[in-house]
Structures are given as C-alpha cells and as structure tokens.
C-alpha cells in the first residue's frame, strides 16, 4: 500500500485517488480445499438457508401459533406453564430440597453454578487438549448438565395436566340462548347465510358479536343495508320481529 509522499487524493479528502485493483485473494496457498467465502461458500450457505426456510415455513403453516383467551388475573385456578425452554428451571423448583426453605438452592445456587461454569468454561478448562475424550472433566460435566436438563424437561412435560391446559385457556365463543326468539328470527331470515349459524361471521359477512351497536342502529342497518356487503331490505318480516332480532344481536358480548 502506498503511503506518505507522492500520494494523491480525491479533492481535499482523505480518499486516495489511485484505484486499487479489485481482485480477491488467491486461496491456493492455504492448505486443503480452501475456498473463498464470497461468492463460492456464501452461495452454498444460501442454499442450506433456503432448505431450512422451507421447513420453517411448513412448521409455521401446519401449526398455527397458539393464542389463549384474554388474560384474566382473577382466574385463580389457572395452572401456569412457561415456554418449553424454561421448563427445566421450573421443574427444578418442584423438588423438596430446591423449594420452600431451600428455595435459594433451586433459584440461585444450582442455576448460578451451572450458568456461571458455562460462562467461565474457557478459564476453568485451560488445558491445550481439544478432543472431548482428552478432557473428561469438562465433557463429563457438560453431559451431566445435558442429561439433567433433558430429564427435568421430560418430568415437567409428563406431570403437566395437558387435558386441563387445553381447556383452561381456550377462547370461549360467546354463548347465547338458541331458543331466544331473536335467534329464531335470525335463523329464518337471510342473515344466517352470511353471518353464520353462530353469528361469528364468515367470508361474506362480519361477526355480529360485540358490535357495540344499539338496537335502533341494528334495525336501521337491517332495513337500509350497509355498503358494500349488506344489501338494503335484507330483513323481511314484521316490525315486532325486527325489534326482537335487533335487541338479541345488540346484547351479544365478546367473552
């Protein structure tokens, strides 16, 4: 690289005016079948990434991400469960000598020692040997940690009441009385075709649950329609029936 006297710059800047040839290094001098990161190896990584992304997207589409009902702090009977990668820490606190009077053992001492040792591994295992079989203490401790994490997670999963977990947080659709005269009218009219049997809406009509509308407003929509989807004069019946229907829909609340 040219330094010092005789250097030319672009204007009064510090950018050298002399262009450097833009040639990648020759890797033939390195041992083995070394290759350039850009673009040779990056292309291969790109392909691995694409295959991984396909699996990732399939997982996303097959298993919709869960959503339970809105948080209700008054529900005392709810059995909590953290995300799966915290289960081993959670399970640890269920054992006698890691809970109650000994809770510090479960919350501070054991996790502190384990994660502390993990963080300081290079300073604890200072030998020159790198093969796992040649450093039995480090390998053994890590295997012990892995077995403990697997066992604790396993125990946590098998002791959890999954049946109850499935129902306890479920989003409950609004419950309504199917014998309500309002609902009877709803079913006889064309409303049901678009807004659905459960009033929860569909492809061509929105949900009628928790609209926040007053009966008068609903009566108006049923008579005059609501662009773009709702046609005018959709309701065909007496004013008395219309009133009952409007009052029924107006009362529907989201849980």
């Amino acid at each position: 690289m040219h330094r010092g006297k005789g250097m030319k710059f672009v204007g009064d800047s510090r950018v050298p005016a002399e262009r450097k040839p833009n040639i990648p290094k020759d890797y033939s001098e390195f041992p083995g079948k070394t290759e350039a990161f850009w673009p040779n190896f990056l292309l291969k990584e790109w392909m691995v990434g694409a295959v991984f992304l396909i699996g990732y997207l399939i997982l996303t589409i097959v298993h919709e991400s869960p959503l339970e009902k809105k948080a209700d702090p008054t529900d005392a009977g709810y059995i909590p469960l953290p995300d799966w990668y915290f289960l081993f820490l959670y399970q640890l606190l269920k054992y006698k000598y890691a809970a109650g009077d000994y809770v510090l053992i479960g919350t501070v001492i054991i996790p502190g020692l384990a994660f502390g040792a993990l963080m300081l591994a290079p300073f604890l295992d200072t030998g020159l040997e790198r093969r796992p079989s040649k450093r039995p203490v480090a390998t053994g401790l890590m295997l012990l940690g892995l077995i403990s994490i697997t066992y604790l997670t396993w125990e946590s999963v098998v002791t959890h009441d999954w049946e109850k977990a499935k129902t306890q947080g479920k989003i409950v659709d609004v419950s309504f009385d199917e014998n309500d005269p309002g609902y009877q009218i709803y079913q006889k009219q064309s409303c049901v075709g678009c807004h659905g049997n459960t009033l929860s809406g569909g492809a061509s009509g929105p949900s009628l649950i928790g609209t926040g509308l007053k009966p008068e407003e609903i009566m108006k929509i049923a008579k005059e329609g609501k662009p773009p989807g709702m046609p005018p004069n959709a309701f065909k019946g007496s004013d008395e029936e219309l009133k009952q229907l409007a009052e029924f829909i107006s009362k529907l609340e989201k849980k």
Partner: peptide, 9 residues
C-alpha cells in the same frame, strides 16, 4: 467482509 477463506474442514 467478502475476502476471507473458508477452510476445508
């Protein structure tokens, strides 16, 4: 960033 070697292993 681009110019570094990826060893065989």
């Amino acid at each position: 960033v681009a110019d570094h070697e990826v060893p065989e292993h």
